[in-house]
Design a protein around this nucleic acid. Sequence first.
DNA 1: CCCCAGGTCCCGC
DNA 2: GCGGGACATGGG
Length: 272
Amino acid sequence: MSRLINVADFHLAATLLCGQAFRWEQQPDGWFEGVVGRRVVRIRQVGQMLEGDDLTHYLALDASLPAIVATFPPDEALQVAVRQHWGMRVVRQEPWETLASFIASSTKQIVQIRQIVRELSRRFGEPIDGTHFAFPNPAVIAAASEAQLRACKLGFRAPYVLAAARAIDSGALDLAGLARRDYDDALAELTKLRGVGEKIAACTLLFGCGFHQAFPIDVWVERSLRRLYFSRRKRTPRQLREFARRHFGPHAGWAQQYLFFSERTRKPNTNP
DNA sequence: CCCCAGGTCCCGC
DNA sequence: GCGGGACATGGG
């Protein structure tokens, strides 16, 4: 089961810690441990060697990073972010786990989002090995009470997660089918859900449904765009959306993730 | 005690 | 459309 493969243009830590996935722990010995679907997986990188479970699909190792970056605009600000975290990839996550996680994310810090996802899994998910639990299916969440979900620290987001689970469980929302729709249709479908606005919908489509053009704009990306492209001037949400759609191209979501991670790890008081 | 967090909704312009 | 406040909960 443990294997060793050679990988090019890949940075495991950046990929798992850039804020797109919430179930990875880096252990003191350098190995990453996480839950993907119904299995616990362990993986580490030593130089260009990747050791551990086979996560080729999840980690998008079948995609060419240079080819994706070649579609980016040649502006220096983005290129700097790409060089800074070279090897970071947008991974392929399960759509429902992605949607639920990002519903939970609104006005929460990443540590807290991780805690909520852990609690939902622990209380409602299938046990895997005693300490790890799969993320619970929509049907299980749909059968839960709002109070039970609030006990997972969801707060005012509890009814939103519940309603989303019920929409999927009842068949009213075909989450898996969104991948075959037009981006704008899929976005409109998701934003019908209460608690799901454009940002959370874009995250779901990017990280969970394979829409690489999705460009979620949160406070960090807004900060980055204003600083790098608008000399810190205030821009309306509409202006930012239109700029992003026009500027970043077919893999805008990847560019977004580089900008996001770069902004998050930026040392304060550095210019511009 | 105050401020903010990978937002969204609802309100009054 | 745009600006302002409310919304749960926890960390700094």
